[in-house]
Design a protein around this nucleic acid. Structure first.
Lengths: 242, 242
DNA sequence: CGTGTATTTGACTTTGTTCAACACGCGTGG
DNA sequence: CCACGCGTGTTGAACAAAGTCAAATACACG
């Protein structure tokens, strides 16, 4: 979310309205433009040859979407809802980067944030149960949604379908439904309509999300190791010999 | 893998040797230094409160490891083997960045590559079967390993344990063992010793890796949709109205 | 108000996990 | 030199979480 640079950016970009379902970026296509989302949500995903899909991110207002340095994009991007975006051509953006040095640092910071989020998501996909995944997702989605003003008091709109949620969390539609209903039954959340969420017990949801609850069993991963700061400094302090 | 900048970097860094098992970076600790790996392998991971672990990356020679912009690191880093690394303090690195503008672009590129790899890994964790995960991993590990010269003809060293592989792929030790043995039985690979891999049929391995084989069943994800370039351009070409 | 899609629910199957032995390599000390 | 102990890797059998298939219901939209 740049600040002073916004004026400069506006000059170099064109504002577009895009209908739901439109493909902004397609995997393996020559990497075209960058998009800055101002309204709406974009799904960032990859497909396997047989059609399995993994969604990496629901990119909302404030997100910058662009293929990296490579010539063809490594992912696809699709409008989940009607969108308003600013489009930059690649050349214009790199011209901007040369002109405004701070911009580059801004982009680096942004890439690092995206990477941190990706890693959190990898933890979710690799190690969390279905309940933990749904709880994490609802919390992560609701936080910014509530911050930038929700529908009403505590009602959050979920613009994505159950299938999208499933493909984001590495689950199936049915599991997503079942777990959401389970949360309803436990009075943790409720659904005025299937796409409107109310969080009734965020504390409970948070406990579920990081596995604090129902985690009596001891996993076999690197649990025993308690590598405290002591180990840390001892190791790094070793004399250099290269 | 910078080039001309290397001399500059060398001046600003100190070379360290680090024993296996040492913690370079610890999650939630104040973000200290950056490390450039020259020899050995570092695991980048995150733990859940109950000890479940997800490994994001086995960072080998040429990798730069550093906490992002935030004040505390979002992940941990541990020496998988005895290491040789160059350490930069945060301040020295940012001094370098100010002095050499190309460096910043280099870092941005690097971050984008890491992000692309992370996304590929997310696809693996969220949507691939155990066989596909192992096949993908063996290929991904062997490619650079073979490139920079392996033990002998086609023998690749796996410096990580089965537990590390499991935590990298979001599986259990047992599943990793079983699938690897299965591949052996199918004459796709063989293990002179448990940590020495020989790939006998890389084509077969590649077919397994992207699910081209044994994927008769039709998944329910976004399969039907065939949003070709047509959709794409139609959408983006919409007149701007913002 | 009817039609088509999205969501929900139920019954059953599968994949991968859990629990429990067992094998193997290797370093230590008798 | 060999018995022992320990850590890592391997294997088998029972189990469970999530997936599949199928059907009913709810919702949105013309």
């Amino acid at each position: 979310v740049p600040d002073a640079e916004l004026a400069d950016l506006a000059a170099a970009s064109s504002v577009l309205q895009i209908p739901a379902g439109a493909i902004l970026i397609e995997e393996d296509e020559p990497a075209a433009d960058y998009f800055f989302v101002t309204h709406g949500t974009v799904t960032i995903f990859k497909l396997m040859p047989d059609g399995r899909r993994q969604i990496f991110e629901f990119a909302g207002p404030g997100s910058l979407i662009g293929p990296g340095a490579s010539d063809t994009s490594a992912f696809s991007a699709e409008a989940l809802e009607p969108l308003r975006v600013c489009r930059f051509t690649r050349s214009r953006l790199s011209a901007l980067l040369n002109r405004i040095p701070a911009m580059e640092r801004r982009l680096l910071e942004l890439a690092n944030n995206t990477l941190a989020a990706a890693r959190e998501h990898m933890l979710l996909l690799g190690r969390k149960t279905a309940r933990e995944r749904l709880a994490s997702f609802l919390l992560a989605w609701s936080r910014p949604a509530l911050a930038r003003g929700a529908l009403s008091e505590r009602t959050i709109r979920l613009p994505m379908s159950r299938l999208d949620i499933a493909d984001y969390l590495g689950l199936t539609i049915e599991t997503v439904c079942r777990v959401l209903r389970q949360f309803c039954a436990e009075n943790i959340i409720s659904f005025p309509t299937p796409s409107e969420l109310v969080i009734r017990a965020s504390a409970a949801l948070e406990r579920v999300a990081d596995g604090t609850v129902l985690a009596a069993r001891q996993p076999r991963s690197a649990a025993a190791k308690v590598p405290t700061a002591a180990t840390h400094y001892a190791a790094v302090a070793q004399a250099c010999a290269g």
